Amino acid sequence: MTQMIHAPVRPPWRLRIPVHLAMAAALALKAIPGDPRRTRARLALARSVRRLPAADHAHVQEIYRAVIACQPPWWRGQIDCKERSVATVLATALTGRRCRLVLGARAMPAAFHAWVVTADGHPVGNDEAGGHDHPWTPVHTTP
């Protein structure tokens, strides 16, 4: 059976500028050569927002949906979970709040994934790539 994929709803105007800026920064990080350098840059950027007040789950969920809806059509490559998660952390920071970046893995089937977590522990974006069937184990969480 074919699954229908619907176009996401455009986010409100108050979120479009922070989300577009955050997505551009996340894609610029993807252009850094060498995977260890990219990972260190992503983690450093996610750690830099730790002094902001915590965001609630609804706010982070709304920003995550806006990041998915605002993926640029000019980008020819694939936009992975790492870029979406870093863009969510940055867009949340641009709205004056913070959430944490989580890098995780699972054994069966072996895979890696990135998502964000609110200060009270609610995950956002961890249900991608079969997160319901095979849960992800957090390996690194930014402070």
Results as ranks from 00 to 15, higher is better:
100 R>F: 11
52 L>D: 05
97 R>M: 07
64 Y>N: 10
66 A>K: 03
77 G>L: 00
89 V>T: 11
49 V>Q: 08
49 V>R: 11
100 R>T: 02
115 W>I: 01
106 R>L: 02
119 A>F: 00
116 V>S: 00
123 P>R: 06
33 P>I: 00
128 E>H: 03
55 A>T: 10
37 R>F: 12
48 S>I: 04
35 D>T: 13
89 V>D: 10
112 F>C: 11
75 W>F: 07
135 P>G: 00
81 C>G: 05
40 R>N: 03
33 P>A: 07
131 G>Q: 01
98 R>N: 11
139 V>H: 12
113 H>F: 06
42 R>E: 14
116 V>G: 08
43 L>G: 11
67 V>R: 01
35 D>N: 13
117 V>G: 00
129 A>W: 13
90 L>G: 01
108 M>L: 13
60 V>P: 08
137 T>S: 14
62 E>C: 12
76 R>F: 10
52 L>C: 10
96 G>V: 08
47 R>Q: 14
117 V>M: 14
56 D>R: 08
132 H>M: 09
102 V>I: 01
36 P>V: 00
45 L>K: 02
86 V>L: 15
96 G>C: 05
131 G>A: 02
52 L>Q: 13
102 V>P: 12
72 P>H: 12
77 G>K: 04
105 A>P: 04
51 R>K: 12
77 G>Y: 02
109 P>Y: 11
107 A>N: 07
44 A>R: 14
41 A>M: 06
51 R>A: 11
51 R>P: 04
131 G>D: 07
67 V>E: 03
62 E>T: 12
98 R>Y: 08
62 E>K: 01
34 G>L: 08
78 Q>T: 15
89 V>R: 07
70 C>Y: 06
111 A>S: 08
133 D>Q: 15
69 A>D: 03
52 L>T: 05
103 L>F: 09
102 V>D: 01
71 Q>P: 07
49 V>C: 13
36 P>K: 02
78 Q>D: 15
48 S>D: 04
58 A>E: 15
74 W>P: 06
134 H>Q: 05
74 W>Y: 11
93 A>R: 04
132 H>W: 14
102 V>C: 06
32 I>F: 00
94 L>E: 10
134 H>G: 02
113 H>C: 12
